[in-house]
Simulated assay, not measured.
Amino acid sequence: MVRLVAVLIIFIPGVIAAIGIKLMRDTLFDDFHPIFFHTGIQFTVGLILFLAGLAFLGGFIIHRDRKNQKVKKSKLKENR
């Protein structure tokens, strides 16, 4: 059950990032969706969705690796 929840946590931001890529691609190929008022808005929303999904996935991986002690601490944190 726990693994299923973890897969869903990873799957949903991946889908959001994929939707962002699709919106940006559609803007470049002049496939305009009527929900957006301008192609620039469509591209910006796609970029935001892509970056948000990518940031969540990256943060999840970093958090998991730090929890499992697979990432070394940086020298900047040791000097403080």
Rank of each mutant, 00 (worst) to 15 (best):
G53C: 06
I12C: 10
T27H: 01
L47N: 00
K77T: 14
I19E: 01
G58A: 11
I16Q: 05
A17G: 07
L54H: 01
G46P: 00
L28M: 14
V45Q: 02
A6H: 10
I12A: 12
Q42P: 02
P34Y: 04
P13G: 07
D31S: 10
A17S: 14
K77L: 13
G59H: 05
H63D: 12
H63R: 10
V45A: 08
V15I: 14
A17W: 00
H33N: 13
K22V: 08
P34A: 08
G46F: 00
I41N: 00
H63Y: 14
F37A: 12
G53A: 06
A17M: 11
D26K: 03
V15E: 04
K67T: 14
F60V: 11
G46D: 00
V7S: 11
G14I: 07
D31E: 13
G40Y: 00
M24R: 07
A52F: 10
D30N: 14
F29R: 11
N79D: 15
D26L: 04
L54K: 04
K70P: 02
L47D: 00
T44N: 01
F32R: 09
G59K: 06
I21E: 03
L76W: 15
T27Y: 01
F60C: 11
G58F: 11
F32M: 10
G59M: 08
H38W: 01
A17N: 02
V2M: 13
L28G: 04
L8F: 12
F56C: 05
K67G: 04
K72L: 12
K72F: 10
M24S: 07
A55M: 07
G40S: 05
V7P: 02
V7W: 12
L8D: 07
L4W: 12
K22M: 09
R80C: 12
I21V: 15
K22Q: 06
V2C: 11
T44W: 00
F56S: 03
M1S: 15
D65R: 14
R25E: 09
A18V: 12
K77R: 14
K75M: 10
L47M: 10
K67C: 07
L47I: 01
F43G: 01
K67V: 08
M1V: 13
L54N: 03
Q42G: 01
I62S: 04
T39C: 03
M1D: 14
V5E: 04
R3A: 06
G46H: 01
G59A: 08
L54Q: 03
F32Y: 08
L51K: 05
L57N: 06
N79M: 15
L76S: 15
A52M: 11
D30T: 11
L49K: 01
F50E: 02
L51R: 04
L47G: 03
F37S: 13
I21M: 10
L76F: 15
L23N: 00
L47A: 09
I21G: 02
L57F: 05
H38M: 01
L54V: 10
V2W: 09
K75G: 04
